[in-house]
Design a protein around this nucleic acid. Structure first.
Length: 439
RNA sequence: GGUCCGGUAGUGUAGUGGUUAACACGCCAGUCUGUCACACUGGAGAUCGCGGGUUCAAGUCCCGUCCGGACCGCCA
């Protein structure tokens, strides 16, 4: 690609080059003009002296508006008196490739009067020009790449399951329905049934990174009606602890890769360190976790079979303080709180399941799946399900199905906690929620 | 879905019944010897979300409505 990224400019000192970027700032003084240019990688100062020779350039710069785009040809010099990276670009020609309107709908400088979230989302194309937002999506790219690398190395197959479904995929969440040639169909709330089908197909191990849709009228900072789910499913397991082993191993790798690739930028922009987990994540079973919260924080959750938000936060505070981990697995949930396909331990009567909590929020639900059709049917009936409507799914189990387990991982929730931003909206390219379907 | 809170120049806020609605940032113009969150001087810019009501008088009080946020529930 021909474009020279601003981060690489030091490689071109004293050479004649072509720059393209956004106008970040214009400082038009009496005898000299400074234009700060910006691309996704860095900023650089362009300097034009005001004189007869530069008359054309001076007029172009006088007329420049912030956030316009331009193409300039000239020479990049090392220049110690410039605080911005100790370099400056002296143009010979400037071409305004797109002129921005004078006043922006949001405060893109974001210096001390941050625009409201709703307005920023309305103008997301401008909001995303902020350096920190670019870094978030760079982090997302690295996270996905690191996961794919891990899976590829460990014999996983990538699948793309359908998002238009003839029946709801039953994770317990609500589904959207839509009109489909006169019939009612549903948007996938999870690839759950289909990644299990891949187990029945003998694919051994599969993963999918893709959109899921939840018709939950949830007004919180950590819910969306459409988000990116990372799913995987593993055959031939003997225990759901193997599923946790794999998630843990993969996540440590992801964190290392993120720290390695964007750790410096992260620290400069967010003023924090990325903490790479050094050892295994603590695993606490459900009832022990309940007791820990009661004993240590004198808090009793409102629900017997699940955690409320406060309990999730307190468990994470405990794990961080006492167990030195930002990640914590909670295991062995009661069947009441779990979908029908989670396997039940005949001794404890609890499910062979887990959640992964990260900095106070649930980012994963996983389990060993019930692969024996008679028990699966019995459990579905216990959850008041209509067996006919899931017959296509039950069919997967009728002709040989390996013991298997897997998990679903909320990519956006993970990113939200990784960057410690206030809202899932900040880590979603274009957020979709109960009250937002535009732009 | 429930509870609470908010909506005032382009942006963020102040304004708790009484002149011409204030401040900061941004914008425009001018001044300024190299700025770097440039500085200085001046200027434009608001039917105070919308509709109704109370009052001599409403940005301010009341009712309705629309939009948004936080927390809870549901979940990743």
């Amino acid at each position: 690609m021909g474009k020279i990224y601003f981060k690489d400019l030091a490689n071109y000192y004293n050479q004649e080059i072509e720059l393209q970027g956004f106008v970040d700032k214009v400082r038009d003084l009496q005898y000299v003009q400074f234009v700060i240019l910006r691309d996704s990688s860095a900023k650089v100062q362009m300097t034009i002296e005001k004189n007869e020779e530069n008359k054309v350039l001076n007029e172009i710069v006088s007329d420049l508006t912030k956030e316009s785009t331009l193409l300039a040809k000239g020479i990049i010099y090392k220049q110690d008196k410039v605080k911005l990276r100790g370099m400056e670009f002296i143009p010979k020609t400037i071409e305004i490739t797109s002129k921005s309107e004078e006043e922006l709908p949001i405060d893109i400088l974001d210096f001390n009067n941050k625009s409201k979230q709703d307005l920023r989302l309305d103008n997301r194309f401008l909001d995303l020009r902020l350096e920190k937002n670019y870094l978030i999506f760079k982090g997302q790219t690295i996270a996905e790449m690191a996961m794919r690398e891990y899976w590829l190395r460990n014999d996983f197959i990538e699948i793309h399951s359908p998002k238009i479904l003839g029946t709801a995929s039953e994770t317990g969440a609500e589904v959207f329905d839509l009109e489909y040639f006169g019939k009612k169909v549903y948007l996938a709330q999870s690839p759950q049934f289909y990644k299990q089908m891949a187990m029945g197909a003998g694919f051994n191990n599969v993963f999918e990174i893709g959109p899921v849709f939840r018709a939950e009228n949830s007004h919180t900072a950590y819910h969306a009606t459409e988000f990116t789910s990372v799913d995987c499913e593993i055959s031939w397991i003997k225990s759901f602890h193997e599923v946790m082993d794999i998630e843990e191993e993969k996540l440590i790798e992801v964190m290392k890769k993120i720290k390695n690739d964007i750790g410096e930028d992260y620290q400069r922009i967010f003023k924090k360190e990325i903490a790479v987990p050094q050892e295994k994540f603590p695993r606490i079973n459900f009832y022990d976790a309940k007791k820990i919260v009661q004993d240590n924080y004198n808090y009793v959750g409102k629900k017997d079979f699940d955690f409320d938000r406060r309990e999730e936060e307190l468990i994470c505070i405990y794990a961080k303080k006492k167990l030195n981990s930002e990640f914590v697995f909670v295991t062995d949930y009661p069947f009441e709180a779990r979908p029908f396909y989670h396997m039940i331990d005949p001794e404890t009567k609890l499910t062979k399941s887990f959640d992964l909590l990260y900095k106070g929020i649930e980012i994963t639900t996983g389990a060993q799946r019930e692969h024996r059709i008679d028990i699966l049917e019995k459990q579905a009936l216990e959850k008041d399900m209509n067996l006919e409507s899931i017959d296509f799914y039950l069919n997967f189990f009728r002709y040989g199905m390996p013991p298997h387990g897997g998990y679903g991982f909320g990519l956006t929730r993970f990113l939200m906690r990784l960057f410690e931003v206030d809202s899932i909206r900040d880590v979603t390219f274009l957020y979709r929620g109960p009250n937002r379907v535009m732009p």
